[in-house]
Amino acid sequence: MSESMEAKLAQAMAELTAVQEAVARAEGELGQASATIRSRDRAVEATVGPQGELTALKFPDNKYLNMTGPQLASSVMEAVQEGRSRMARRVIEVFEPLTRAGGGATGLRGVDIDWDRAFGSALDDPAGGRRRSRARLHDEIHEDTD
Rank of each mutant, 00 (worst) to 15 (best):
S4M: 11
M5D: 11
E6K: 12
A7Q: 12
A7T: 13
A12N: 00
A12I: 04
T17S: 15
Q20D: 10
V23L: 12
E27F: 04
E27H: 08
L30C: 00
G31D: 13
S34G: 08
T36E: 10
E45D: 07
A46E: 06
G49N: 04
P50M: 00
P50W: 02
L54E: 09
A56H: 08
K58Y: 07
F59P: 01
P60K: 12
Y64S: 11
N66F: 11
T68L: 10
T68F: 08
T68P: 13
G69L: 09
G69S: 05
S75C: 07
S75E: 01
M77D: 03
E78M: 05
Q81R: 05
R89P: 00
P97E: 10
P97Y: 10
A101D: 15
A105T: 07
A105E: 14
G107C: 06
L108C: 08
G110Q: 07
G110N: 05
D114F: 06
D116C: 02
A118M: 14
L123R: 12
L123E: 11
D124L: 03
P126W: 03
A127V: 04
A127E: 11
R131M: 14
R131G: 13
L137K: 04
E140G: 09
I141M: 01
E143Q: 10
E143H: 09
D146S: 07
D146G: 13
